[in-house]
Design a protein around this nucleic acid. Sequence first.
DNA 1: CGTAGAATCGCAACATTATAACCGAAGGTC
DNA 2: GACCTTCGGTTATAATGTTGCGATTCTACG
Lengths: 159, 159
Amino acid sequence: MTQNVYRPHDHSTCIDNAMEQAKAVCEQNGARLTKVRQRVLELVWSSHKPVGAYDLLPLLANEGFNSAPPTVYRALDFLLELGLIHRLASLNAYVGCSHPGHGRASCFFLCQSCGKAQELESQLYDDLSTRVESTLGVKIDHQITELSGICPSCLDQSS
Amino acid sequence: MTQNVYRPHDHSTCIDNAMEQAKAVCEQNGARLTKVRQRVLELVWSSHKPVGAYDLLPLLANEGFNSAPPTVYRALDFLLELGLIHRLASLNAYVGCSHPGHGRASCFFLCQSCGKAQELESQLYDDLSTRVESTLGVKIDHQITELSGICPSCLDQSS
DNA sequence: CGTAGAATCGCAACATTATAACCGAAGGTC
DNA sequence: GACCTTCGGTTATAATGTTGCGATTCTACG
């Protein structure tokens, strides 16, 4: 089962796991995890709240990196291609992928109150799309699902 | 069953139906379908290809309407609130809703080749979300699903 | 009527997100 | 070390979306 980001947890292990996986994925694909790319990935993973590309600019600048948009977008594109992060279209923001290597489907729940994004098992959505594929006679190569609402933790606090 | 936009059809009836429904929905909600709003809706419906907000500006200008961004966005927001159009987050574009009044779920298939957007019955996706809701203990109030790939018609032509 | 209040629209400026084009720097390969 | 490819720095610009304010139009109610 995927981890629940709305429960307290030792977030440093999230980051550690992500970085370890990233190194493995890069090696498998003969891709170079350069300093900027690595740092961008760490920054994206610094919380479970999706981060905007322009939020990263000042953070990188603080650390002596170049801080122009193309730098960030190039790093994000690289990470997207390897499936290490996801782009949330409804937020124009980016978040770490908790299990790189899954299929064409990405599925998230986004809490409107705390802002944290929970990646969901995409299997069910993927199955559904397979059904759509045969019903409509289309060929699906990418799919996104974004649910937004209030997470359990925020629901508790408001009651 | 929802109409298949990838098959040849008399598109003027799509538009007529949409405009008629729009009038009904506005009346039900005590909302005013002003000239700009009506024209924006017609333009969005002028094809099944999602249209960008900035694409509408020159079209409106040609017809003597004000052509500044706020005009278009206000009309689009109005139509979105009434559920007469959908915004496709992965395209930053807008498309007519073929059956206003459905629930929180919107679901589209987007052809990467011809650009046409097919709205899908959202019931299955909505059911799935209800399951997510009880499993995770969250409260979902909005959801989008966007599948992209190649439509039957374009598949035929490429083979 | 006619006037008060609300909704709508025109307009100018600005904010946010993303891309293009060009070139030099860094790393890998032989 | 020479060459090639990938990567990153830099400037500029494109695409998308918002804010704020005042003028106008519509509507409800007396």
